[in-house]
């Protein structure tokens, strides 16, 4: 038996025993790469995801909503921070990861390439987008890679709070004036299909799934999670008195779940490839923040270095 295969065997034993792989453990190169891709994509999604909601902070309609939205967007920055840190344990630094985002080499969730056009979008994003994210992320709390799993425990707690907050915004709108109700329905119409797309391509077209499931990075397939999301969300929409924009949606007694219409995968791939309504705006905003911040980061580093020198001199003196 070669050394690698015995290491690999040990690695798989850890996975099969539902134990965690830790940063210093041996891992197949492909496992490391898959995790870097997935965790960084997740971190980037948190950071880019601050923008569509950030768009409404200065216009939030009440003090309570303004504080909640501000805190929510700040939580996303916090999630980005844990996830970049988790990713760094795999031997790649944040600067490199950001460069991959800024050059378009790394992806982020396509949902954030849609615009936030009304206040109701703050409700719909919380309810649907965070709802879909939780569906994807709860199983990641049991992911085989320890630092990622632990980060996700914290992320999921906060996300479920955001989801309730979003649904509560929708509830107030749905019970409000005719104009508010129309605003809520319009937001649902625009966010429904992109939310379903968040689970990724159908299982038959998903390229990364099989190995991820073997390595217990992923626990359920895209289609399984999408189905769960639909089954969870439809009764919530009913409760709001809003209509999901899918004429083919129908409860299927036999499978105890909803059948739903086909997803427009052309739209999905089009947005992934950069042709969504806000791809350029989102990326430009991130690049601009990073570039405008470079003198600040450089100055902070220079100051820290000066302080360290002063400290050293005083220590040797």
């Amino acid at each position: 038996m070669t050394q690698v295969s015995s290491l690999e065997e040990k690695f798989l034993q850890v996975i099969d025993a539902e134990d965690k792989i830790e940063p210093k453990d041996w891992m197949p190169e492909e496992y490391r790469k898959t995790l870097i891709r997935q965790i960084s994509q997740h971190a980037h999604s948190e950071i880019v995801g601050m923008l569509p909601e950030g768009n409404w902070i200065t216009r939030a309609p009440s003090l309570k909503r303004k504080l909640a939205l501000l805190a929510k967007v700040q939580d996303e920055a916090g999630h980005g921070l844990y996830l970049y840190s988790a990713c760094e344990t795999l031997g790649i630094d944040r600067e490199t990861l950001l460069e991959q985002l800024h050059t378009g080499k790394a992806k982020y969730s396509s949902i954030f390439n849609y615009p936030t056009l009304t206040w109701a979008d703050m409700g719909a994003i919380g309810w649907l987008v965070d709802g879909a994210a939780i569906m994807n992320q709860v199983p990641l709390c049991r992911c085989s890679y320890g630092p990622y799993a632990r980060a996700m425990v914290r992320v999921c707690k906060e996300e479920s709070f955001h989801q309730r907050q979003g649904y509560e915004i929708m509830t107030v709108l749905a019970k409000g004036s005719a104009e508010q109700k129309a605003m809520a329905q319009d937001a649902l119409n625009r966010w429904w299909w992109p939310s379903l797309m968040m689970f990724g391509p159908n299982d038959s077209d998903s390229t990364h799934s099989e190995m991820s499931i073997r390595w217990k990075i992923k626990r359920f397939s895209n289609d399984e999670l999408r189905q769960r999301f639909v089954d969870m969300t439809i009764p919530q929409a009913d409760l709001l008195g809003l209509t999901v924009p899918d004429p083919m949606l129908k409860y299927n007694e036999a499978k105890k779940g909803y059948d739903f219409g086909p997803i427009d995968w052309d739209e999905f791939w089009n947005v992934v490839k950069g042709n969504g309504p806000c791809n350029e705006e989102r990326l430009n905003a991130r690049v601009k923040a990073h570039e405008n911040g470079s003198w600040v980061r450089e100055a902070a580093a220079a100051y820290a270095q000066k302080q360290a020198q002063i400290h050293n001199i005083s220590k040797t003196a």
């Binding site: 950071i47 601050m50 923008l51 950030g54 902070i57 200065t58 303004k66 501000l70 967007v73 700040q74 920055a77 916090g78 980005g80 921070l81 970049y84 905003a285 601009k288 923040a289 405008n292 911040g293 470079s294 600040v296 980061r297």
Partner: peptide
């Protein structure tokens, strides 16, 4: 609050 999402580095944004 206008800075939120546009800070020079993530920690300072927060």
């Amino acid at each position: 609050s206008e800075w939120c999402g546009h800070g020079p580095v993530l920690e300072q944004d927060i």
